[in-house]
Design a protein around this nucleic acid. Structure first.
Length: 612
DNA sequence: ATAGGGTTAG
């Protein structure tokens, strides 16, 4: 097969003679031509077997010593085994002879930097390069930084930064941009990235995108948005990559108004609406709860890929629209788009949120049977969630026991929760205890166990957990509700006396309570897992960040305007019930995005049908 | 030859 390809590839130059003979004779007489030929053969080489054959042939013909050829070897394939093969030739050759140059090393360094599994090898060749007294050039640093960024090795990045600094390559804009990116890949490096960014004499949209993307990666979406605002103020135009990052930040924060503005900006500035930009728009609208707009963008796309489909499917899933998610999935298949493991996670989530147990099970089986996808822990997680949400604790447990892979803490927590809901507190307690043993620093494990003890009225055990947490310095994540109003994002934390309007807000909360009671609301004091009397429990419920946010929205938005709230935790039972009453009493549509899904409250009921 | 980006169970 190789000989065929080779002779076919050579046919125009070497017409009659057999290929191997051609090579050896020509090399002696016309080395340069043979080199050229070999290089062009390597250009079309896309498998390890071809590579090894070309190499074997080269050995015969004496061309292996040529650095140019070796360079081509390294850049020829993105497959790890081909890169390793090229690497081994370079290592061997470097022991014996030759005039290696920076170009050669850059190529192999770049090849390794682009792999997922073997980025460390890039540094091996960097050191080999130095040991041969070959000076790195300005191209070497972006490659090294790329490798270091992927490894999330802050110290490595610092070292490269230092060496680049000494050689003066840090003045190159490319190097600076990659530097910002590499630093921003580590949570502890993000502020250094910002410092590098701030000290850059010049910047490009790439620099800004690197910074915005960095803030996004470490979960600082507010800072990401702030960077974008700074761009606007500075009159710097972003490009399509910037837009993708900014839209991602909007999606994360649930900032619909800003997201809409970004879409407008894309139109106005004629930023190319690439597939990725449209996918980001779809995802932004979906995560902001505007599934209609998400579908509009999706339907208008000229080209859609698996990510586009998955985005709308997940969008439907978080709205609890299981049927539509399934319909979209089937439509996707009929368009010839092959679902991947992520698409199945979306689909299974949709089934789980909508209580579609039968469909969920059948798709889970189909995934492996028809598409050969081996279920990952996430897929098993979806299934455990599917049974658990439907209250089938026993089935969920059986499923876990039959799983071929080890369940992880997410799955255990799902089980703890379902047994807790069903009042099977002993099982919950025992799983919970062993989980704390496995993950002693994970905050939610303690919260779960503490809730279990509260429900058992074992207050002394509960307070023990609390002091254990204190001793280990583990803090409960405070509940927080966000609301976007007139281009501003407001944050409310439970019981927080915020800077502005707090007296008015607390008054409003009281008024809401009275109006709700008149409509039949009864506070769910059993939700308050504290050893205090009933009246104090009611007060504690009123301090929940969600109620504060709603009060704030009622005070500051026109009557009848819909209210949109984004929470960092799941909505509690009492807030869920209260919000239903508020939607009716105040005649408002209230959309709450919780940690996992949307609740659309209208006229006294919720779109989740109390299934969440 | 060089840089930044979209979907993922609770």
């Amino acid at each position: 097969m190789f000989a065929q390809t080779l002779s076919h590839g050579c046919s125009s130059v070497f017409k009659r003679k057999p290929i191997f003979q051609t090579f050896s004779t020509r090399i002696i007489t016309n080395r340069r031509a043979a080199e050229q030929k070999c290089l062009s053969l390597l250009s079309s080489c896309n498998s390890l077997s071809k590579l090894t054959q070309i190499h074997a042939h080269l050995l015969k013909s004496g061309l292996q010593t040529n650095p140019l050829v070796l360079t081509k070897f390294s850049s020829t394939s993105s497959h790890l085994n081909s890169i390793d093969y090229a690497a081994s030739i370079i290592v061997t050759s470097s022991r014996t002879h030759l005039i290696f140059d920076a170009f050669l090393f850059n190529t192999i360094i770049r090849a390794y930097a682009q792999t997922d599994q073997s980025k460390h090898s890039a540094f091996f060749f960097y050191n080999l390069m130095l040991s041969h007294s070959i000076a790195p050039n300005k191209f070497t640093y972006p490659f090294l930084l790329k490798a270091s960024a992927g490894l999330e090795e802050l110290n490595l990045t610092k070292q490269i930064h230092g060496s680049g600094l000494k050689l003066g390559f840090d003045e190159d804009l490319y190097v600076q941009n990659t530097m910002v990116h590499a630093y921003s890949c580590c949570v502890e490096g993000i502020d250094i990235a910002r410092k590098v960014f701030d000290e850059m004499p010049k910047s490009s949209p790439v620099s800004w995108s690197a910074m915005i993307g960095g803030y996004l990666r470490v979960g600082r979406s507010v800072d990401a948005i702030d960077m974008f605002r700074r761009m606007q103020v500075g009159g710097i135009k972003g490009d399509e990559v910037t837009m993708v990052s900014v839209l991602s930040a909007c999606a994360d924060l649930g900032a619909l108004q800003l997201g809409r503005w970004v879409e407008f900006y894309i139109e106005k500035e004629r930023i190319p609406k690439t597939v990725q930009v449209c996918n980001a728009l779809v995802d932004m609208f979906a995560k902001c709860g505007d599934i209609v707009e998400a579908m509009r963008v999706f339907r208008n796309m000229k080209e859609r890929n698996i990510v586009s489909w998955t985005s709308v499917i997940v969008g439907m899933a978080v709205q609890g629209h299981g049927k539509q998610a399934v319909t979209l999935f089937e439509e996707m298949k009929s368009h010839g788009v092959v679902p991947d493991d992520v698409a199945f996670i979306g689909l299974l989530t949709a089934c789980s949120h909508a209580g579609m147990i039968r469909e969920g099970c059948s798709y889970f089986n189909l995934m492996t049977r028809e598409f050969g996808i081996v279920p990952k822990i996430e897929h098993y997680g979806c299934m455990v969630d599917l049974f658990s949400r439907a209250g089938q604790a026993k089935k969920a447990l059986e499923f876990v026991q039959k799983m071929p892979i080890e369940p992880n803490s997410v799955i255990w927590r799902t089980l703890i929760n379902v047994f807790w809901v069903q009042g099977d507190l002993e099982i919950s307690e025992s799983i919970s205890k062993s989980l704390i043993g496995d993950e002693p620093m994970h905050e939610s494990n303690y919260v779960l166990l503490s809730n279990i003890y509260a429900k058992m009225f074992r207050w002394e055990k509960k307070s023990k957990i609390r002091s254990l947490m204190e001793k280990k310095g583990i803090r409960k994540v405070p509940g927080c509700s966000m609301i976007e109003l007139n281009d501003q994002i407001y944050e409310f934390v439970s019981g927080d006396k915020m800077k502005q309007q707090y007296e008015e807000i607390y008054k409003m909360v009281d008024e809401m309570g009275r109006e709700m009671r008149r409509a039949g609301y009864v506070p769910t004091t059993s939700e308050v897992l504290l050893d205090i009397d009933e009246e104090d429990k009611e007060d504690a419920l009123n301090l929940h960040s969600e109620k504060l946010a709603i009060a704030f929205a009622l005070l500051n938005s026109p009557p009848g305007a819909p209210i949109r709230i984004v929470k960092n935790l799941r909505v509690c039972g009492d807030c869920h019930s209260a919000t239903k009453f508020i939607s009716k009493v105040y005649n408002r549509e209230i959309l709450v995005r919780d940690r996992k899904r949307f609740h659309r409250f209208r006229c006294g009921s919720c779109s989740c049908n109390d299934y969440w």
